[in-house]
Amino acid sequence: MKKIHWILLGMVTLASLALQYFGPPHPHPHAWDSVPLFYCIFGFVSCVLIIVVSKFLGKVWLQKKEDYYEGDNDV
């Protein structure tokens, strides 16, 4: 990621915020629409949550060595 990419991302975010607050309102507003930057926070937190929770489940329970089933007399 070069600096220019981050600047572009920032501009996209600003444009979306401008559209959010100055654009036409949603006909069916949701309870969370009043939280500032809701979808930005939602995106970031969800992403971190998915990685951390899945990796945790993998480490403590689900992940096994690749030869786990090898040598089994399953079908």
């Binding site: 991302l9 975010t13 979306s16 959010q20 979808y39 930005c40 995106g43 969800s46 992403c47």
Partner: peptide, 8 residues
């Protein structure tokens, strides 16, 4: 846009 940007 916001969800995708911040997921990235």
């Amino acid at each position: 846009t916001q969800i995708l940007t911040f997921t990235f």
